[in-house]
């Protein structure tokens, strides 16, 4: 699946992996969760969606792997609207890391990471090799960690496994929903720095949701600022740091106070 998306993207004329075209999502009662979203995610960039709780950034993320479908407008992944994709195929070609990690508590680390390859019927040996490779990539010695269960890991280790799992089938796109949000500050900044290094070597298209402005400035090649379901700004970290938009200034100021 991942290969197929790669292929389609190679054939596509643009350098754009994900595109939002006038996307609106309303609840059944008519309340807009996100409204009028127009932006694109370019190949290989790390787009950070920044905003307060409830600003619509997680909703935006879930529109990409079709955990949600737009009420209006279209989300294009590899030039194809998500609603035209087979949902299962789409999701298997997009890595997904969420804040609560969602590791399967009854699977070992090995099985958690190897899940999508297993669903894709990779040969056993190839899965094992891939899991070993990924555990080394995220800095967990495979012999020691592969047989463990999630509850035998620390929070930081669990989060590393979560990232490894999302990368397992080598998907071109990675969605990350506040992946480091639940960690203690020291572990968090450790992982952030490590992830920045990792991301630079991976050449993945990454959409990263956070409410931590430092994280946004550290990881993002561009930062999209969300407020009340609207995307109010989209710019590079440098531009963002000097933005005159009140919401952006509020975020920058909050950093100063810390």
């Amino acid at each position: 699946m991942a290969e197929s998306l790669n292929r389609e993207m190679t054939h596509s004329s643009t350098e754009i992996d994900v595109q939002f075209a006038a996307v609106t999502l309303c609840t059944l009662s008519g309340k807009a969760l996100v409204e009028g979203l127009n932006f694109e995610v370019r190949r290989g960039e790390t787009l950070v969606l920044l905003g307060r709780s409830g600003s619509g950034k997680t909703t935006t993320l879930k529109l990409i792997n079709r955990l949600l479908a737009p009420t209006d407008g279209e989300v294009l992944v590899g030039d194809i609207p998500t609603t035209h994709w087979d949902a299962i195929r789409l999701r298997r070609s997009i890595g997904y890391v969420i804040q609560e990690i969602g590791l399967f508590p009854h699977f070992t680390v090995q099985r958690n990471i190897g899940l999508v390859p297993q669903l894709e019927h990779w040969p056993e040996e190839r899965i094992r090799a891939r899991v070993r490779e990924l555990l080394e990539l995220v800095g967990l010695p495979p012999e020691q960690f592969a047989p463990r269960l999630p509850h035998e890991l620390s929070g930081g280790q669990r989060q590393r496994v979560g990232v490894a799992r999302a990368l397992a089938a080598d998907p071109p796109i990675l969605l990350m929903d506040e992946p480091f949000g639940a960690l203690d500050p020291i572990t968090r900044s450790e992982l952030q720095r490590e992830f920045a290094r990792l991301a630079a070597g991976l050449h993945k298209t990454i959409v990263f949701v956070t409410h931590d402005v430092r994280e946004a400035l550290l990881l993002g090649s561009r930062i999209g600022l969300f407020k009340d379901g609207h995307l109010i700004e989209m710019q590079t970290p440098d531009e963002f740091a000097h933005s005159q938009v009140p919401e952006a200034k509020a975020f920058i100021d909050s950093m100063g106070r810390l």
Binding site: A87, I98, G102, L103
Partner: peptide, 11 residues
């Protein structure tokens, strides 16, 4: 969260 992860991974 476990269910959402499973869904998001394309199960």
């Amino acid at each position: 969260a476990v269910r959402e992860a499973a869904l998001g991974m394309g199960m």
